[in-house]
Computed example of a mutant assay.
Amino acid sequence: MDELVDLYAEGDLDGRVIGTAPRSVVRRDNLPHAATQTVLWHNGSVYVHRRTETKDVYPGLHDVWAGGVVTAGEGIDASARRELLEELGVASAVRPLFRYWYADNRANYLAAVYEAEYSPADGAIRLQPEEVAEGWWMPWPDLVARLDDPSFGFTPDGREALRRYRAAGCGPFDPS
């Protein structure tokens, strides 16, 4: 079944919903919607994963952001928590950081950026096999160095989110 997705006023950082459309139409027509991006930290490292080859956007590329499309009627914060739990099996609290508008020829969305701290007490990370092919912890300095390498197959929206994350003075995770 094709889930419904809220449509947002393009460029509006406040998240004003202006309608809905089936996800397939949102993807086909690159309609403005909202998506969450949550980076997961543990002991100065971030969780890096490789997307499956069957993902509808940026298949097979690396990313650090657990997240996805905000569905119709779903709050943005609730979506961030849901996506972290679905993709990585982690129920950690998410901390909202900032929003920005991202658009390219494959995606057009209000990006809501979050971070979370992983605790082994939350249980093992469990990857959603439909979306995440593999994952591992990477020290923050190593990730920053890899991002400077244009041959590192990383999602373009994820690269942009990390650029903004660093520019905002975020990372490594500070729970305050």
Rank of each mutant, 00 (worst) to 15 (best):
D157V: 05
P22L: 14
A167L: 10
G169C: 06
T38S: 11
P141I: 09
G158W: 02
Y8G: 01
L110I: 08
P141L: 10
I18P: 05
H49N: 11
G123I: 13
V94T: 15
D2K: 12
T38P: 00
G89D: 12
T71Y: 15
R163E: 13
R159V: 00
F154D: 00
T155I: 08
Q128P: 00
R159G: 01
L61V: 04
E117Q: 13
N43D: 11
W137S: 05
G171T: 05
L143C: 09
R28M: 07
V90S: 02
L31H: 12
R81P: 00
D29L: 10
H62W: 13
V25R: 08
D12F: 12
P156Q: 07
Q37G: 09
T52D: 07
P120C: 09
A124I: 01
G123A: 10
D148L: 15
A133M: 11
I125L: 12
G171H: 00
I125Y: 05
A66K: 01
V94G: 09
N105L: 10
A161W: 02
A93N: 12
G19R: 07
L127S: 14
H42N: 13
V144F: 09
L127C: 14
R16F: 13
D12K: 11
L110D: 01
T54P: 00
L85W: 05
D2S: 15
A72Y: 07
H33S: 13
R163T: 12
R28G: 01
D148P: 00
A145W: 08
G89Q: 06
E160I: 10
R163N: 06
V132Y: 00
D142I: 07
P59V: 05
A72V: 09
P129I: 13
R164D: 04
Y8R: 03
S176F: 03
S24R: 12
Y109L: 08
T155M: 10
A167V: 02
G158R: 04
Y114G: 00
S151M: 15
E131H: 11
G73N: 14
G15L: 03
D157S: 12
T155V: 10
